[in-house]
């Protein structure tokens, strides 16, 4: 039972505003627990802080406050040097997360070696083909380079890489949003199967409410760095309580409700406290006019 407990995570970024320096709170007191066999989804729009949380869990960013603790099956906290044996990450864009210069084998063999899972060329090669098989890719793919693979195949390699150190906690940061729609399902099913086989704890980060509902057990809805609603996934999506969650659910495309009347009226927005919109270009939340 390897469990990750994130408690009161805070992340402040320094922003240069003209000559003054001010700090921007990207993540504000977020807590959750990742347990084996369970998936927690972080749902929110761009700028809500969900990717920053992923980076903090993967130790690519240092939290400004709060704590992240991983406890091993023996009930003892995993020391820092072993953290990466346990916690791995699948990145959003498989076209960017594999080094174009290196073969698939390099991407899988390095983590195997680094974490002492394989010694010697023969054992490494055997484990690499085993990893490829687990993500339903033929062993012959080991000698290929990323540009010879399709998006879905690349993402499978990226998943295999996350599994290579023997991770028990996997952060999946929008793992399918850059893929063609007909491939997404296969990748999500693969993640679901691996999770069952390995009893993985998964943090699933997405802006897509529908996959969040089907893929996860618990959903946390983020708005401007804060968790505005959390609960079992069906409850959060089918019976949203917070106005912002209601707004998100109503705004998502839903062919089953073709003739519904939808009004993103000022009232609904203001009630949700969602008067600000995130600007992708300036990277700031701005109050809507």
């Amino acid at each position: 039972m390897t469990t990750l407990v994130a408690r009161d995570l805070v992340k402040d970024f320094g922003v240069r505003d003209g000559l003054r320096r001010r700090s921007l709170r990207a993540v504000d007191r977020v807590s959750f627990t990742l347990e084996p066999g369970r998936t927690v989804a972080l749902v929110g729009e761009s700028g809500s802080g969900k990717s920053t949380i992923a980076k903090m869990i993967a130790r690519l960013e240092k939290p400004s406050g709060g704590s992240i603790a991983v406890t091993g099956p023996d009930g003892v906290e995993v020391p820092d040097k072993d953290y990466r044996h346990r916690v791995q990450m699948v990145f959003q864009d498989p076209f960017a997360s594999l080094n174009p210069f290196h073969t698939v084998e390099h991407h899988l063999a390095r983590p195997l070696r680094l974490h002492g899972r394989a010694r010697g060329a023969e054992e490494t090669a055997r484990l690499v083909s085993e990893l490829l098989e687990r993500v339903t890719l033929p062993a012959s793919f080991a000698s290929r380079r990323p540009h010879e693979l399709s998006g879905g195949q690349r993402q499978r390699v990226a998943i295999a890489r996350a599994l290579a150190p023997g991770a028990e906690i996997v952060v999946a940061d929008e793992p399918v949003s850059m893929l063609d729609v007909s491939i997404r399902l296969g990748i999500l099913k693969l993640l679901a199967r691996l999770q069952k086989e390995e009893d993985l704890a998964v943090l699933y980060i997405t802006h897509d409410l529908a996959t969040a509902r089907h893929f996860s057990d618990e959903i946390l809805v983020l708005y401007r760095g804060r968790v505005v609603e959390r609960g079992p996934s069906d409850r959060v999506i089918l019976d949203p309580r917070h106005p912002y969650t209601k707004l998100l659910a109503a705004a998502s495309p839903n062919p089953d409700a073709r003739d519904r009347v939808f009004e993103v009226g000022r009232a609904a927005v203001e009630a949700a406290g969602a008067t600000a919109a995130y600007d992708h270009h300036t990277g700031r939340w701005e109050e809507a006019a």
Binding site: K189, A210, F215, N254
Partner: peptide, 27 residues
């Protein structure tokens, strides 16, 4: 089928079978 329904039955979407491995691998 690639888009799970927001409000439809839960489960069928993920629990179904994965696409089989065919020659040249899956997409």
């Amino acid at each position: 089928d690639s888009f799970p329904s927001l409000t439809g039955d839960r489960g069928g979407f993920i629990r179904g079978t994965e696409p089989a491995l065919h020659d040249g691998g899956v997409r």
